[in-house]
Simulated assay, not measured.
Amino acid sequence: MAHAFEAGEARAVYRAIHERRDMRHFVGGSVAPEVLRRLLDAAHHAPSVGFMQPWRFIRIRGEALRHQLHRIVEQERVLTARALGEREDEFMRLKVQGLLDAAELLAVTLADGREKHVFGRRTLPQMDLASASCAIQNIWLAARAEGLGMGWVSLFDPAEVAALLGLPEGAEPIALLCLGPVADFYEEPMLQRERWAKREPLASLVFDEGWGRPSDLFDHPSTVEPT
């Protein structure tokens, strides 16, 4: 294709996608300021509906604030476990220590005043969240390319986190990102390794012309490697 990357560059993109992991184990250390700026710049170059750029990033640097956030997460982790019923004990074995152990902790929030952005959101207001999620994915892929792990924590009460971080009315926290050096990357997603869930076959999730109609894309084996 005329505008395709060189083969090695394309393979690197696909490698970052396939080797990205939601990390839960960190080894402290640090992230150089220039690397963190690159990661945030990657996030800021994510697509956003109507070019609304709804993402805001708060760098959590103080230990006391980290511990307060960890307490909020632990409260929700217990409540989530109870809601899972028979899988409560299994869930409680999945720790969320990255908030305390990772080199960097970033809170990602949706900005206030999003209601003024109508382009692309009139019937789908949740596109602000979709746009911010693209920014988070950009950080994730860039972090993997830099050799850094990242974990997305969403076990928290948004109102409590908003109050703790002093968010203005209308702003909304959507993620706590644990970021930093790791001993190693999981060979497979942690929740798959722990037998919590497994990746669904792609062919079962792609339809032609309408819901539930199997796609002929998968009549023949295909490769995930770019040519």
Rank of each mutant, 00 (worst) to 15 (best):
D208M: 07
V206R: 03
V13F: 10
R20Y: 03
A162N: 00
L84R: 10
E160V: 03
H18M: 14
L165F: 06
A103P: 04
F57S: 07
A83T: 08
Q126C: 11
S131C: 06
Q137N: 12
G120R: 00
W152K: 03
F156E: 09
A10C: 07
D112K: 15
E115P: 13
H25V: 14
E34C: 12
E86V: 10
A46R: 02
P47H: 05
S154C: 14
G113E: 07
Q126A: 14
A135C: 04
V27I: 14
F5W: 10
I58L: 11
L205R: 09
L99W: 00
E34N: 09
H67V: 12
E104A: 07
H3V: 14
L167T: 03
L164R: 10
I174G: 03
L164S: 05
L176D: 03
I60E: 02
E160A: 14
S133Q: 05
V108L: 09
L177G: 03
V13G: 08
A163G: 08
G180Q: 00
T223L: 15
P158N: 08
S131P: 01
I174A: 01
D208Q: 06
D22G: 01
A7F: 12
L129Q: 10
W211F: 14
E188M: 08
E104H: 08
G151R: 05
Q126I: 13
L105D: 09
I174K: 04
C178P: 05
D41P: 01
F156N: 08
A132V: 04
M1Q: 13
A2T: 15
I139Q: 02
A107W: 09
R59E: 11
